[in-house]
């Protein structure tokens, strides 16, 4: 049994330690908001936060995490003001198309904005270029992140 802290709750899972967090979330705990895309940390659709860092859950064996790291998934952001601002920005300019990559994009964007509240375009691209979108919503993701930054700058 491995103990994990997921979205503020302690959960026990009975899996081999080499099991990637992604499949524990999706197939053991039924939390399917975090997606599978490549399995090799190349596309970012599986991004979750571990102690605030955006990590690719497809390449993170649960045995490496331990019981004290705080794992936050797309389902665990209800009380997070930055997440609310990011989602609002996404809705305001209709970022999504097929939507499959968007949970990962949003998790990456939230982590970026928490680290750098007012990122430059270069910082946005450095923080987001690990997340692929096949529909090509990059223009709007960029714009949405700029909008969040601008709104946060206006009301510090």
């Amino acid at each position: 049994m491995l103990t994990l802290q997921i979205n503020g709750k302690s959960v026990e899972v009975d899996v081999d330690p080499d099991t990637p967090l992604l499949w524990v979330l999706r197939d053991v705990l039924g939390m399917t908001g975090t997606k599978y895309g490549c399995g090799t940390a190349e596309c970012g659709v599986c991004t979750v936060h571990v102690d605030g860092r955006p990590v690719r859950s497809c390449s993170l064996p649960v045995g490496l995490i331990g019981p004290r790291k705080a794992i936050i998934t797309i389902e665990g952001l209800q009380a997070d003001p930055v997440a609310a601002a990011v989602r609002k920005a996404w809705l305001d300019i209709d970022v999504v198309q097929c939507g499959y990559c968007q949970p990962g994009q949003i998790m990456a964007a939230i982590a970026l904005l928490k680290k750098i509240p007012n990122p430059t375009d270069e910082q946005i691209e450095a923080g987001m270029s690990g997340n692929l979108c096949r529909c090509g919503t990059y223009m709007r993701i960029r714009a949405a992140i700029r909008n969040v930054a601008a709104a946060q700058g206006a009301t510090p």
Binding site: G33, R87, W90, D94, V95, V96, G99
Partner: peptide
């Protein structure tokens, strides 16, 4: 379909 897609639902 935006809301359910940004919520991961």
């Amino acid at each position: 379909d935006s809301q359910v897609k940004v919520d991961g639902q």
